[in-house]
Amino acid sequence: MRSCAKAGTVKRVVLTSSASSVTRRPDLQGDGHVLDEESWSDVEHLRAEKPPTWGYCVSKVLVEKAASRFAQERGISLVTLCPVVTVGAAPARRTRTSVPNCLSLLSGDEAEFAVLAAIEKSCSTMPLVHLDDVCRAELFVAEEPAAAGKYLCCSLNTTILELARFLAHKYPQYGVKTGLLSGELLEKPRVRLSSAKLVREGFEYKYKTLDGMYDDMIEYGKALGILPN
């Protein structure tokens, strides 16, 4: 951003952050909460309690706020995009992203499922977005003249149990590893991450259902060796 300010020719900077800057709040008791761009993860609570991945979440909040201050001081047009759990096929032949997590109900990988369960527990939802939609949203906020501030990028709020039922119906040949479905799993999301600001300004998601999200991810999982051919 210093280089952008020095050059004087950059029209807009797009910062890709994470919904982790929004979701980690201790005050979300009960059901029906809706979090949007005005919500922030509680940095003081995270620093005091140090739950899993607390440092990652704190870093996202601090980076976003520092970038925003710098942009205001230097007159830079800054837009921040915060994707949720990102799924779908990618060009990479190796992945350590959320793809193995979201395929763990079919692969039976307990370590990857543990990550998935931790996401649901910390967010009180399983928020998903397809990789293609993240890329399209990046271009949208870069090119849309009126785009400003922060945008959550989430096309679907679901739960692990809803995901398991969908996978069992759609891909019975793999067999959902129901033995993994223990512990405090949610029947329905208690929190919903809202992408209304992005949609209101003209963006349209291509992938809004589990069907669309998983069709190419199953083939991707085969190519990566996560799932059998």
Rank of each mutant, 00 (worst) to 15 (best):
E120L: 07
A142C: 15
L131A: 11
E143Q: 06
E120H: 07
E144Y: 11
E144L: 12
L152P: 14
R165C: 03
F140N: 13
L128F: 13
H130N: 09
Y151W: 11
A146P: 01
T125L: 10
Y171K: 05
P145K: 04
A147N: 12
L181N: 03
P127K: 03
P127W: 02
A147K: 12
C154V: 15
A114T: 03
R192M: 07
G183S: 15
T125I: 03
L181W: 07
A137M: 05
V129C: 12
V134R: 03
L167V: 04
G149F: 06
L156T: 13
N157F: 00
R165K: 14
N157R: 01
L180A: 09
G183R: 10
S124D: 11
L139Q: 12
M126H: 05
V176P: 05
A142P: 09
A147F: 07
E144N: 12
T159A: 10
A142F: 12
R192N: 14
Y151T: 10
G183W: 01
A148Y: 05
C135H: 06
A117H: 02
E187C: 03
T158D: 12
G149N: 14
L131Q: 09
L152T: 00
T125A: 08
P127D: 05
S122C: 02
E144M: 06
V134K: 12
H169C: 13
C135V: 15
Q173I: 09
L152C: 05
K188R: 10
G149S: 07
S182T: 15
V141N: 02
L163G: 08
E187Q: 10
R136Y: 02
S124K: 15
V129L: 05
S124G: 01
A168C: 02
Y174E: 02
K170R: 14
A142L: 15
E144F: 11
K177D: 12
K170M: 03
M126F: 13
R165N: 09
V191T: 11
A137D: 08
S182Q: 14
L156D: 08
H169D: 12
L131T: 13
Y151H: 10
D132F: 04
P145I: 08
E184M: 03
V141L: 04
K150N: 04
H169E: 15
A142V: 03
V115E: 04
D132A: 14
A142N: 11
K121F: 04
L180P: 05
P189H: 00
G175M: 11
S155F: 00
L167Y: 02
D133G: 08
G183Q: 15
E144D: 07
A142W: 07
H169T: 09
G183V: 07
G149W: 09
S155Q: 05
G175N: 12
L128G: 10
S182H: 14
L180M: 13
V115T: 08
L156V: 06
Y151N: 02
L193H: 00
A164D: 11
L152Y: 00
S155E: 04
E162M: 07
S182Y: 00
A118N: 13
F166V: 03
K170I: 02
T125R: 02
L167G: 05
C153L: 14
V129I: 08
P189T: 04
